[in-house]
Design a protein around this nucleic acid. Structure first.
Length: 739
DNA sequence: CCTCTCGCATTTTTT
DNA sequence: ATGCGAGAGG
């Protein structure tokens, strides 16, 4: 093992303190690019060098990716074999809590084999709750009820506590729904994301035995991105750390971007008063970005009023001035970004060192198209997208029901997918039967009969469904049985086939169905991947399935980022937190987009938007490219866009502006001149497009501005805006010329 | 009683 | 573009 001296070699004084101050509470205020990850990993290495058993260390992060990276970097510093470093716990808050509840959940929610509900499951459950309270879904919108419940859970308020605080009618009604929602979750043997935290916090608060055990084990606690923790997470951390008081939190108030999700910035601001004698170490020096970039970021964030003044600086060279460009529309914007990507790539910057960031996921589409057309490799950081697909969710619901027959949400989802002739009426009847007999819906399905008012068709279908799931359960439960379910992948494959999911997609056979079928294939290979990577070789298929479902429930967008892939990364600003690239482009710097429309009228939210922009800027090491457009089409509507106020706030002599003329308003603009000959483009005209090649015009929709044409190209039918398409006429009007 | 289709609204960010 | 609720058809 290396000594402390060797570990801290080359670090600054502040960094050394962060690494070596191992006993007692410490707050590290780590500005962007201040070597935070280095400090955190070296801190762990140093603890082990000092003789602390890895088993006694707990490091909590927010994303799986951050956890994986941290673990890998620690392993690269310490020989994993010699020091029992595998006992080290590096985990996300949510999966740490999931694991804790898998061990002791019976003491707080009466179960250790619960299912984890995602947002859409939550929505389904809350709808049931609203109906159970005899309220209407139009007056009590599931999504907004849910966000109130979620907000409560993030503040450690369970249904009881929330009801106790409820004053007015509105709050009291929500409290009723909250109660009902909770009882549905419990009877389904399920928890939602927020429950993972809330229940763990309550468990630690109420159960001295568990608290003792965790306190004894985790003598050294480390929390990354502390500015994004909520009240409930604070309580969890506090319970664990309260005995040994070796709590190290790392974060940056300027990078707090999750207040909307319940993050409570006072956790980091009040750390000193919450933990007496806490050491506070500011890391302000930036080792990542060149001078002009740091200056731009500093100038922007200085506009936040509710902020502790903090100096940002770098000793690196001034570097390149951030470039700010305004384009006509989002297509031009995408082209400009790709042009820059290509240029830098030619100069030697690898694709994997470049990223394009945006405020909302919707902006990725145009960028993706452009990257594809230009043949530049890219990946979109959206890990959850795959598991959000309908067919994948259906398949996963079958798996879930197998693992947990009480999961009524899963049952509802798949009882008629594929169609089995179970409609609304049968479902309501089944629901009644289940509730009068105190059964879950799957169990109730066994007892339906004509006498109870069900149709013959429904009875048959429900019985068959019940038998099918029961058979799966029996087959997969026997660990020894290598015949029925030899592997997790086999299990998934079998379910996809026997459920009829596969057949229903094969039967119709449209393009879309084919795609869905492929997604199911991909799910099967994801299962087989997961199985291979699993460290526990003795696990039965059912145990593996358990772990697989938990994995699926806790994947996040940024998990899709694989640094080994040589591709440009496209992601939201939120997902970019904690990452860095040589080249960063931020698209859509327009009022209403960044800052987002919904934040414009609220100072607090506006400051969060500014921090979000700050996070984006500080991802860049050497090149920063910021763009806005004059017109942007969203949801099919083209609207005039105003440059973001942040552009004004951050620019100066340290930035480089490229101004353009609004071509819509300028009669002499070349585009409009060429647009004149677009009058010759009519039905049947054969045209050539720069990218799509030669095609025939199918339809022309004339409008005052932004006329659209539908053209059949060899690669497929495209809808283009006439003025922008830059079409070259090959044959003026083929239909006429034939006569 | 179920299924399919059409029209409607609808989207910020995510563990 | 997607998901839903309503309403007609089977």
């Amino acid at each position: 093992m290396r000594s402390t001296e060797a570990i801290v070699e080359g670090l600054t004084d502040a960094q050394i303190t962060s690494v070596t101050h191992t006993e007692g509470p410490i707050l590290v205020l780590a500005g962007p690019g201040s070597g935070k990850t280095t400090v955190v990993t070296k801190r762990i290495a140093n603890l082990v060098a000092q003789g602390v058993a890895p088993w006694n260390i707990l490091a909590l992060t927010f994303t799986n990716k951050a956890a994986t990276e941290m673990r890998e970097r620690v392993f690269s510093m310490i020989d994993p074999e010699t020091y029992g470093i595998k006992g080290l716990t590096v985990s996300t808050f949510h999966s740490f809590c999931a694991r804790t509840l898998r061990s002791w959940g019976d003491r707080i929610i009466g179960s250790r084999s619960f299912t984890i509900y995602d947002t859409s499951d939550q929505k389904s459950a809350v709808k049931t709750a609203i109906r159970a309270c005899e309220l209407s879904e139009s007056n009590w919108k599931p999504a907004s009820v849910l966000s109130i419940i979620s907000g409560a859970k993030n503040q450690l308020l369970d249904a009881e506590a929330f009801a106790a605080e409820a004053q007015d009618f509105h709050a009291k009604t929500i409290a009723k729904i909250y109660r009902s929602y909770e009882s549905i979750l419990r009877s389904n043997d399920a928890v939602d994301f927020d429950d993972l935290l809330l229940c763990t916090a309550q468990l630690l608060g109420r159960d001295a035995e568990v608290r003792n055990e965790l306190q004894q084990r985790y003598q050294y606690l480390l929390i990354d991105e502390y500015q994004d923790t909520n009240r409930t997470q604070f309580v969890i951390a506090d319970h664990i750390a309260s005995r040994h008081r070796n709590i190290c939190v790392v974060g940056d108030p300027d990078q707090s971007i999750y207040a909307w999700r319940g993050a409570d910035i006072s956790n980091i601001l009040d750390f000193e008063s919450q933990y007496e004698n806490a050491a506070v170490v500011p890391l302000g020096r930036n080792f990542r970005s060149t001078g002009y970039i740091v200056e731009t970021a500093a100038k922007l964030i200085a506009h936040n009023k509710l902020r502790k003044e903090k100096r940002l600086y770098t000793d690196l060279e001034k570097g390149n001035k951030p470039v700010m460009v305004t384009l006509q529309n989002e297509h031009e914007e995408a082209e400009t970004i790709i042009h820059e990507v290509k240029r830098l790539h030619k100069e030697g910057t690898p694709y994997k060192e470049m990223a394009v960031l945006y405020r909302v996921n919707a902006l990725s589409r145009v960028l993706e198209d452009a990257f594809r057309n230009e043949g530049v490799p890219y990946i979109v950081a959206r890990g959850t997208a795959f598991y959000d697909r309908r067919e994948v969710k259906d398949a996963v619901s079958y798996l879930r029901l197998l693992v947990n027959p009480k999961d009524d949400v899963a049952f509802r989802r798949i009882i008629n997918a594929p169609a089995r002739g179970i409609g609304k009426t049968s479902l309501v009847r089944l629901e009644q039967l289940a509730s009068t007999r105190g059964l879950n819906m799957l169990a109730a399905a066994e007892f339906v009969s004509k006498d109870l008012g069900f149709t013959a068709r429904a009875v048959k279908a429900l019985h068959l469904f019940h038998q099918m799931v029961t058979k799966w359960r029996i087959d997969s439960d026997s660990t020894q049985s290598l015949t029925a379910a030899a592997s997790l992948a086999d299990l998934v494959e079998r379910m996809v086939r026997e459920s009829g999911l596969e057949a229903s997609l094969k039967r119709i056979g449209t393009e879309e169905d084919h795609e869905r079928l492929q997604n199911l294939e991909e799910l099967i290979s994801a299962a087989s991947d997961f199985e291979e990577r699993s460290e526990d070789d003795d696990a039965s298929p059912l145990q593996l399935l358990f772990a697989f479902l938990e994995h699926i429930a806790l994947v996040s967008d940024s998990d899709a980022i694989d640094p080994r892939i040589g591709a440009v990364t496209l992601m939201t600003l939120h997902a970019s937190k904690g990452l860095e690239y040589d080249f960063v482009a931020i698209a859509g710097l327009e009022d209403g987009l960044l800052p987002h429309m919904r934040a414009v009228f609220d100072d607090t939210q506006m400051e969060e938007e500014r921090r979000l922009c700050f996070v984006g800027i500080t991802r860049a090491r050497k090149h920063l490219h910021i763009s806005s457009t004059l017109r942007r089409t969203q949801r099919g509507l083209t609207e005039r866009a105003m440059p973001s106020r942040f552009l004004r706030e951050m620019s100066g002599s340290h930035t480089h502006q490229e101004t353009v003329v609004d071509k819509w308003d300028t009669q002499i603009a070349p585009e409009l001149k060429s647009a004149e000959n677009t009058t010759e483009i009519t039905l049947g005209t054969i045209v050539r497009h720069k990218r799509f090649g030669v095609g025939k015009v199918q339809r022309v929709l004339r409008r005052e501005r932004g006329s659209t044409v539908t053209i059949d190209f060899p690669s497929g039918t495209k809808h283009l805006v006439l003025e922008y398409a830059n079409l070259e006429i090959v044959i003026p009007d083929s239909s006429r010329s034939q006569f």
